Simulated scan of single mutants.
Amino acid sequence: MNFSPKRKASNIILLISAFVIVSLILWNTNSFFKKFKEEERLKMEIWATAQLELVQSSVDQELGNLTLKVLGNNTSTPMILLNEEGSYKTHNIPEEKVADSLYIQKKIAQFKNENEPILIIQDGELLETLYYGNSEVLNKLKYYPLALLLIIFLFGAVIFFFFRTNKASEQNKLWAGMAKETAHQIGTPLTSLLGWNELLKTENINPDVTKEIGKDIDRLQTITERFSKIGSIPELREHNIVAETEKAYEYLKKRSSKLVHFSFSSNVDEVPVLLNPPLYNWSIENLVKNGIDAMRGKGNIAIQIEKKGHNVNILISDTGHGIAKSDWQNIFSPGFTSKQRGWGLGLSLVKRIVEEYHKGKIKVFSSSKEGTIMQISLRAIEK
């Protein structure tokens, strides 16, 4: 991703513009709310005037059509009309609550907090007090800024995760390109090593030496193949998981310290699975090396294969210091490591190889101060 000064300036301008737009929307919404509240206040004052005319008309004259229309037109604002004797009338309040005096007292207190009561006075004498609350529309409008902020926040989160995903995608492409270029560069000296090893075979040298050199060259070819396949979909073919695991086990056993004791066992001789051997062997190698690191180069490594139902489980155990249970999921996250010089990529690659490429599962089967057992589960091919 481009982090040039021009790009940074554009991001800052975009951020300031977004802040200004949000501020204007909130200010406009608040102004509209206040205006609407003033209009509702005016409507209640007109209603109170009509109520006063109602009181006067019962004594002096007949009630006009306009007054009747004003009194009957309010169907949304809840009101309580309280006279000096303590009796009250209600409008737009649930009928089942009208007779509950405690509920009415609570409503009066609520209405006083929401709006200043309107006094109905005749000839200097207080006849009634009108308490009114916010209408349903006004209450909804009151929470509109919060809903708007939530929408803006969610929209911002979507944009953030979009750019973050885009950045991660570009980084993945960069790593894939570097891996393929590394594989390409390794190819030239590897070809020379093959030639030199063939030349050594013609000399008076112990055949076991050239045989082991050949195995290491094959290993380098396997590593080169792994790097060349990063970023592309691996090809899966039917292989015997027991034989492939044992092959990886034997290679690691011969090239590990004598202080590390290896053991291998399986309750079956053959289990066919869809497999990419170079990537699978890479996974086994990572898990075994992690176990050796956890034991600080001294202890027991055991690989066990179990066929259970339609699945085959590969268990890799060590006698290291163990993993805290709170980190059982974190260890598969890119960048997470307990090593001082670790990159935190090994187990995340293993998880990707097992779960994304081979459609299997990997997890911490168990862990304590006595050691850790990692489990890979793959689907067996039924015949």
Rank of each mutant, 00 (worst) to 15 (best):
H321F: 03
Q51D: 08
I25W: 00
I323N: 03
K369V: 09
T222Y: 04
F3S: 11
S17D: 10
F3Q: 13
M178K: 15
S58K: 13
L190K: 10
N286C: 07
K247P: 02
A324W: 07
S232V: 07
L220Q: 01
T29N: 13
Q185A: 12
K325S: 13
Q171E: 12
Q340K: 15
L68A: 09
Q122G: 03
K229W: 00
Q375V: 03
A248N: 04
G322F: 01
S135T: 10
S135K: 06
N311C: 01
E356Q: 11
V209G: 08
F262A: 08
G214Q: 03
A9T: 09
V209Y: 14
E96G: 09
K89H: 05
N313L: 07
I186V: 14
I373F: 01
D318M: 09
F155L: 15
W47P: 12
E356F: 01
V354H: 05
K167V: 06
D123L: 07
R352E: 12
Q340H: 11
L130S: 07
I93S: 01
D318W: 08
G344N: 08
I152W: 08
L146S: 10
T77S: 06
L126P: 09
Q61G: 01
H91I: 08
I353L: 02
W27G: 10
F153L: 15
T188I: 12
K69E: 14
V350K: 06
A157C: 12
G133I: 00
P272M: 05
I213P: 11
L52T: 12
K142E: 12
V273F: 08
K180I: 05
P5H: 03
N311W: 03
V288L: 08
K363W: 02
P189R: 06
G320S: 06
E270M: 10
N330S: 13
I108T: 02
L349E: 13
E40R: 07
M295N: 05
V137K: 15
I331E: 07
G291T: 01
L138E: 05
V209R: 14
V354Y: 02
H310E: 15
L275N: 09
K215C: 02
E53C: 08
G214T: 00
Q122Y: 08
D60M: 11
G322E: 04
F332G: 10
